[in-house]
Simulated scan of single mutants.
Amino acid sequence: MFKYFGYELADSSYGKEYGYEDWKRWDLETPHEISICQVREGFKDKEYCRGALGHHDHIAFSASDRKDVDRFYRDVLLPLEKEGHCSIQDAPCDCPEYGEGYYATFFFDRDGFKYEFVVNPNHLLKMNQRKVDQGSGGKG
Rank of each mutant, 00 (worst) to 15 (best):
G101E: 07
C93S: 14
R110C: 12
P96D: 10
P92G: 05
I88C: 05
D94R: 01
I88S: 02
L78M: 13
G101C: 07
D70M: 07
S87T: 13
Y115L: 14
E116C: 09
Y103K: 05
D70F: 05
V69M: 03
D94S: 13
F107Q: 01
A60L: 03
G101I: 07
R74M: 09
F72Q: 02
C86T: 07
G99N: 12
I59H: 12
Y98G: 06
A104P: 00
G112N: 11
C93L: 11
F106H: 08
Q89H: 11
L80F: 14
G84Y: 05
D68I: 01
F72A: 08
T105Y: 03
V69F: 02
D70E: 15
S62Q: 13
G112E: 10
T105L: 07
C95S: 06
A63V: 02
L78H: 03
D109H: 00
R66H: 05
L80S: 10
G101W: 03
D65A: 12
Y73R: 05
F61T: 05
D111M: 08
R71V: 08
A60W: 03
E83S: 10
R74Q: 14
D70S: 09
S62E: 11
G99I: 13
D70C: 09
L78D: 03
F113R: 12
A91L: 03
Y103M: 08
A104C: 11
D111W: 09
Y103E: 05
F113L: 15
G99M: 11
S62P: 00
A91M: 09
Y73K: 04
E81L: 07
I88A: 04
S87Y: 00
E83M: 05
F61Q: 06
R71A: 12
F107W: 12
D94I: 01
D70G: 08
D90T: 15
Y73F: 14
K67L: 13
Y73S: 04
R110H: 00
P96M: 11
C93R: 12
P79T: 03
D75R: 06
F113M: 15
A91T: 08
V76G: 06
F113D: 08
S62F: 06
C86S: 07
D65H: 13
K67H: 14
Y102R: 05
A91G: 03
F108A: 08
E81F: 07
S62N: 11
F106I: 10
Y115T: 08
F61P: 04
F107Y: 09
F61G: 05
I88M: 10
A60K: 00
D70N: 14
L80T: 02
D109V: 00
Y103W: 09
D109P: 00
D70K: 04
Y115R: 07
S87A: 10
F113G: 04
G101H: 04
F72S: 03
D111Y: 11
F108S: 11
Y73I: 04
I88W: 08
A60T: 10
R110N: 07
E100M: 08
E81P: 02
F113V: 15
L77E: 01
E81V: 04
E100G: 04
I88P: 01
D70I: 03
F107R: 02
L80I: 06
E83G: 00
D111I: 06
H85L: 15
K114E: 10
S87E: 13
